[in-house]
Nucleic acid binder design. Structure first.
Length: 256
DNA sequence: ATGGCCGGGAAGCCCGGA
């Protein structure tokens, strides 16, 4: 049996609802992890997704942030507390689906490198890593990491080096995930493909393909060899009223 | 060749995003 899982920063679940529905109908994922809901739990359109056959687990807040897991398979062991870190910012929801631990994250952007929020962003990676290491089962951290890990993951590495989402200190945090046993599965399966998941709304960035690969799927050793594919679906970035991010889809093979 | 956006909540602007 194969489970099709996706991650997508939708940039407002309410503004994006027609695009999300169209995409679910096209791709038929078993699980979709969403970030940047920009909605409270009360504002989340449960009925729409439930009518499409999805159970919904939501960690929302007013105006900013917010994450959700929707799944056609049963969801259990839901957690929304990331070790007590930044409790007022709803950026994480984890759950078990068919024996797999999914940790859905929206890492802080950090503002500018000079901003105090940048240090908070660096700390977020460390807290997330320690949180992920506590699960003794196939574990997948997926979502918007707000960093392009390497030169190949951004449009102009020389010009962007040191700026937000491509700072050496941020990229080093991704290396520390690797040291902790987590593999960037898209990069493992496509070692020389320059592919992006985000393009700025401004400056015709999508048409000029000035993007970054900010949305990652990191898997531990117990999960690594069970993933048979991982692709970036650029299609919904071309649709009317798109998110500035596009989905990353992977397939997980399970027994029975 | 170049680059001028988008969303929410409160209010007719501001903050945040990356």
């Amino acid at each position: 049996m194969e489970i099709k899982i996706a991650t997508w920063n939708v940039n407002s679940v309410r503004a994006r609802l027609p695009v999300i529905i169209r995409w679910l109908n096209k791709e038929q994922p078993d699980v979709l992890c969403m970030q940047e809901l920009k909605a409270t739990n009360e504002q989340f359109p449960f009925d729409v997704f439930e009518n499409l056959g999805y159970h919904c687990q939501v960690n929302g807040q007013v105006r900013w942030n917010g994450v959700a897991i929707i799944s056609r398979l049963p969801i259990s062991d839901v957690e929304t507390d990331l070790s007590g870190f930044l409790p007022e910012q709803k950026r994480m929801i984890s759950a078990s689906v068919h024996g797999i631990k999914l940790i859905n994250v929206y890492v802080p952007n950090g503002g500018e490198v000079s901003n105090p929020r940048f240090q908070e962003k660096l700390e977020y990676y460390q807290v997330l890593r320690n949180y992920a290491l506590k699960f003794n089962k196939p574990t997948i951290i997926l979502g918007d990491f707000n960093v392009a890990p390497n030169d190949i993951d951004t449009h102009s590495p020389e010009e962007q080096n040191g700026s937000i989402c491509f700072h050496p200190l941020e990229r080093e945090e991704i290396n520390l995930f690797h040291s902790a046993g987590f593999t960037d599965v898209f990069r493992k399966l496509h070692d020389d493909e320059k592919a992006f998941t985000w393009w700025d709304y401004r400056a015709a960035s999508f048409r000029r393909n000035r993007g970054m690969r900010l949305d990652l799927v990191l898997v531990n050793k117990a999960a690594e060899n069970l993933i048979t594919s991982c692709v970036i679906d650029k299609a919904p970035r071309e649709w009317e009223k798109p998110s500035d991010h596009t989905p990353v889809i992977f397939v997980f093979k399970v027994s029975e």
